[in-house]
Design a binder for these strands. Structure first.
Lengths: 358, 358
DNA sequence: TTGAAAGCGCTAACAC
DNA sequence: GTGTTAGCGCTTTCAA
């Protein structure tokens, strides 16, 4: 699949290697070709200011003919702002981050902005190096989707000091008085409990994670629904484990079975834990969902478990889109007032791990 | 968590809103402060050319004192090249792409380059829009990790026409005479077969995917090992299904069971299919791995299945790193000669779905 | 409605 | 070793 190019003198080896690559045309070349000034070309191509229809036509034609392409760098030098949006995340292999990135990118690029990924891992140095780079390349804005440690906050602050707007999108980070997007953990928990109760379950086990705000809110949401709908409190067991892991899910079930009331349905604080729950239940020769219903959170790999996991899905893609939207409004200097705090609703995805009681 | 800033006159509301934000210092300011010329500053800060130790010291000090930060945009305008590397991929939520992206980003940023993600989805327009943007922002290089349709090839070509180096990294795309990185599918297949034979299996079932080069190479690799090690050909069954899906894996097992020789081990062309295999086997009341061993490819979610899947892992992270390396060499104009073709070895990950025969 | 011209901040050729 | 200077390609006054 060879591409043929026009034959030139250099093809016959008689002229130096010079690779005469015709210089990319600039606004100046277009101006010359159209017989107008560069400022006129700028006006019509940039779409601002006035130009007579005739001139406009001529410029357009010349530009097309020359294959003119604006130089974003030159423009940025003048406007003191590139069309780069930085995205801080710990790892792009984390499905949540990937979904956010995709939503972000989609909206950003529809506005002509590029998304630069800044995977910080657990490394604080890395974060500040990215901050540096973003500053040097005159980034237009930055979204943070990382744990909010001190180093990161400092980075955000230095960005803000340079008038680069910043938003946070999911993740424990909180930057004082900046736009923030989160998922409605409480409502997600509420949804999970609602689903189970509607299926007729009355004895509910909940496995939460210690010291996790997200887990706490999910539990609160579930508990709130349960209370509102007359579920006898003594029939609701809440246990707490140390981490969001399969092992913890497993442990959680053990803890639950030590209680007086054996649950007919279990809410795990995320899918990974729900997987551990499934595993433990199988060992105990309890069938899911016939004997026990199980529900997780996140919708991260719920399609892959057997039975397929009923779960509460998080709107990460939308979160990314909203993050872009809010950021872009700030970037373009719209008067949107104070900091904004957006809470996105979660959504129940019913699969195979839950069914009617008895 | 409020950050206190130095009190200024404007704090007391007596001066206009003006936000006197002290203009970011430029090379000029540093020059003035150090009592030298801008070119000297450029030389010491840029690290090229000569400068006496004394001058160097003075410049450094002035730069630090002023909080000088080079303006990447201005530099790019001059050098006609930004430090942006474009990464074309269909979706970042695809784990492979995410891993490549991470490897790519890691190396790229260690060299001071930024990675811009270009998620094309299945949309050809999108690809050319990204190409446009990359051209306009004077990208330094681009890596492609997408299906190689015509539109994308055109984009790559236009990049090349503008002297922007391009490499492909995993994915069916092939750009004539450019560096290319792939995983060694053949060797992966070989590895899978070797593992099973070493466990004592003699009757092997292989489920491949029609019209897939990757699948074909994996099968060839497996077949090759089998032949070399005296496995009776009639005891090896190869069936082909239509897609890389759970359903296809399921179908594959059905196809295999219709054959005379019932396999004691099954190789599925990827993990998704292996999941279907697991499912079908369970329905047939065959235990894995006691009755049948199962092996997949990709290591995409093999930790999540029950039993956990033995699989052949693809070195995507490394692929991303290598892609960055090759690209950077081209970008920095190293004389690395002709197009390079790198084949990365795959790796067997033994989990629970395979065991010794009988 | 259009044009001339002054930079944006940096690099690099050239002169000293 | 160091300084002068001319741009890179664009935007944006200001005048015409």
């Amino acid at each position: 699949m060879r591409t043929f190019t026009h034959g030139t003198l250099s093809d016959c080896g008689l002229v130096p290697m010079a690779r005469k690559k015709t210089k990319t045309p600039t606004i100046k070349d277009v101006a010359a070709a159209a017989g107008v000034s560069t400022s006129t070309v700028g006006r019509v191509l940039g779409g601002y200011g006035y130009a007579s229809p005739e001139t406009r036509r001529r410029v357009m034609k010349a530009a097309k003919q020359l294959g003119y392409r604006p130089n974003a760098i030159a423009r940025s030098l003048k406007t003191k702002q590139s069309r780069i949006i930085g995205f801080f995340l710990s790892s792009i292999t984390n499905l949540f981050h990937a979904r956010i990135a995709e939503g972000l990118q989609e909206v950003a690029s529809s506005y002509g902005y590029n998304v630069v990924i800044c995977c910080t891992g657990l490394n604080a140095n890395r974060a500040s190096a990215f901050g540096q780079m973003l500053l040097e390349s005159q980034a237009a804005g930055v979204v943070f989707s990382v744990p909010g440690d001190e180093a990161v906050i400092r980075v955000a602050q230095s960005l803000l000091d340079n008038d680069i707007p910043v938003v946070t999108c999911h993740g424990s980070i909180r930057i004082p008085s900046q736009d923030r997007i989160v998922c409605d953990d409480f409502q997600g928990g509420y949804l999970a409990a609602k689903h189970l109760v509607e299926l007729g379950h009355q004895r509910i086990g909940i496995i939460g994670v210690k010291d996790s705000g997200t887990s706490a809110r999910r539990i609160q949401g579930a508990a709130s629904f349960l209370k509102e709908h007359g579920i006898v409190p003594s029939r609701v067991s809440i246990v707490e484990v140390v981490s969001y892991s399969t092992e913890s899910g497993y442990t959680g079930v053990k803890l639950l079975s030590a209680r007086d009331e054996k649950p007919s349905a279990i809410i795990a604080a995320n899918d990974l834990m729900a997987l551990g729950v499934l595993e433990c239940l199988e060992e105990m020769e309890l069938r899911v969902p016939e004997d026990v219903s199980v529900i997780g959170f996140d919708d991260s790999f719920a399609e892959m478990t057997r039975p397929r996991l009923t779960t509460v899905a998080l709107p990460m893609y939308e979160a990314g889109q909203v993050a872009a939207q809010l950021l872009l409004e700030r970037i373009e200097g719209k008067d949107v007032g104070e900091e904004r705090f957006i809470t996105l609703p979660e959504r129940l995805v019913v699969r195979e791990s839950t069914t009617v009681y008895r």
